[in-house]
Write a protein that binds this DNA or RNA. Structure first.
Lengths: 207, 207
DNA sequence: ATGACCATGTGAAGAGTGTCACAAGCAGGG
DNA sequence: CCCTGCTTGTGACACTCTTCACATGGTCAT
């Protein structure tokens, strides 16, 4: 069963919203209430969920405690993913030390950098290694996901090295288009473009 | 003239690609070559550009040196945007000190944090101030864009304080849905969801 | 047990986006 | 001057995604 990208994105949001509700002690919720609470569309929620079967109860809504494991399973978040970070600058460190990324299914198990000043530093539970040993570090740590927080000119090479070392997917923060290798999906995240997009929607004034 | 979100995103990519070509000394380029070089769609490039007028020359292609200022103007990147960062953790520092964000149209002019250990630190060209003074800091620095790199529970409050202090748009990294105020557009960037989306597309194996 | 109520699940309509193929048009050489 | 070759700009098509409205089918009170 395949999920379209926009649906996938929303399912992640639903899961997070449901977890928030669970923390607040909410047992069951209707699509209407869920939509109001998190600024979503009620019909969309129902359609997205119904795509995988009937999880709700008519007249009542959805059981929070049942829906969370179901969504977690659908999104394949019911297992651990080991992550290796390439480039331990501020952004790389944000990934390695932010509790939001290191809690739950994703665990940053290793990090490398080419800057001698950073090599040897202890960041989270690991010591930063030399980029030169990226392949060994990746294999030893058993990382399945690579995060590229390196300058644009080094992104392609590091992607390929990660792929060869057995990584199954790469999240790229470098502002460049990477040629992908079949079997090693890539997701681009371009922080500068987000700023540029936001700038376009700023209320226009002639200052 | 309004631009749809996907088109806007691509225009930013085109602009970046063209700048790369300009650095390489390329004078003119066809949509075909541009598409090959940066893994885009030739027809899409032409359609996106033609939406704003005829910039190309039939039989030749597009003049790099002419197209760059045109795109820059369309995207409203021909001016400076002052940015204030709320939350000077690793992610906030990445924004403030990364040359990719501080070069070009975006300049981080101020940053605040609630952690006493961080207040007073010099990050880029500015000193981190107490979050308590967010409004004053924003007004004094004349910031037009706010970046939220705070925990989820503080995001809504800080968005509203930024809005009241005169910020014209907010880029939110907190994993929560913010209720927007008319006239102050918000763009959400959720790093955890990017990991989750990537995880879904990982080649499946039964390890 | 029965009826009123309520929320889901879903087919159909509508909007938006991407792809394709081709006519229009410019450059350069003969 | 004319013809060939190349690339743009564009209208039509196909596809995806979203929204809407309603029938289906449970729950709860009486």
């Amino acid at each position: 069963m395949s999920i379209s990208p926009p649906t996938l994105n929303r399912l992640c949001l639903y899961l997070r919203s449901l977890k928030r509700l669970q923390e607040d002690g909410v047992q069951q919720i209707s699509s209407q209430k869920l939509a109001e609470r998190f600024h979503l569309s009620a019909a969309q929620i129902r359609k997205d969920l119904a795509h995988f079967g009937a999880f709700g109860v008519r007249g009542v809504g959805y059981q929070v405690d049942e829906l969370i494991p179901t969504l977690t399973s659908i999104l394949r978040l019911d297992r651990r993913y080991r992550v290796v970070v390439v480039g331990m600058g501020n952004l790389g460190r944000a990934f390695a030390s932010h509790p939001g990324f290191n809690r739950g299914p994703f665990v940053v198990v290793a990090g490398v950098d080419s800057d001698p000043a950073k090599i040897g530093e202890t960041v989270n539970d690991f010591v930063v290694r030399d980029s030169q040993f990226l392949e060994e570090v990746t294999r030893e740590s058993g990382a399945e996901i690579g995060v590229l927080t390196v300058p644009a000119h080094g992104a392609q090479e590091n992607y390929e090295r990660l792929a060869k070392a057995g990584v199954k997917g790469v999240l790229n923060f470098a502002p460049t288009r990477i040629r992908t290798i079949p079997g090693v999906p890539l997701k681009d995240v371009d922080l500068r473009i987000y700023l540029e997009e936001l700038a376009y929607y700023l209320p226009f004034d002639d200052s």
